[in-house]
């Protein structure tokens, strides 16, 4: 799982060949910390998706560009376009179906 900022966002997210799951989070956000290990695990086990992390405190431009007003906020991006979004702490099974697009 890589850390993304406004300098590498275009390259890592918008121009990615794979689908990208963007995890908007912050150090102070408990539910974000709960999600982190699960996202890490998916990141290493699922080659079909790229998972990146954005710290909203450091990257407020990206957070406001994507209208993030509550975290954890997961945004799925395909060919540079947002295709789906999930807000708040979700269970592993809900996360799997969110990623799977079911």
């Amino acid at each position: 799982m890589i850390e993304v900022n406004k300098d590498n966002f275009d390259k890592e997210v918008l121009q990615s060949d794979k689908r990208v799951l963007v995890d908007f989070n912050a150090e102070w956000c408990g539910p974000c910390k709960m999600m982190k290990p699960v996202l890490e695990e998916i990141s290493t086990s699922n080659n079909e998706i790229k998972i990146v992390s954005i710290n909203v405190d450091d990257e407020d431009e990206l957070a406001s560009k994507y209208n993030v007003s509550s975290i954890p906020c997961l945004v799925l991006i395909e060919n540079g376009e947002e295709t789906n979004r999930s807000i708040g702490l979700i269970s592993r099974s809900d996360l799997d179906s969110f990623i799977g697009g079911k």
Binding site: A26, C29, P31, V56, D57, A63, N67, V68, S69, S70, I71, C73, R85, I87, G88
Partner: peptide, 17 residues
């Protein structure tokens, strides 16, 4: 609208406002 302006936790989401 949850996460798009509606929130149940000011200390969680206040910083975005």
């Amino acid at each position: 609208l949850i996460g798009k302006g509606v929130s149940y936790c000011a200390t969680c989401d206040g910083a975005f406002f």
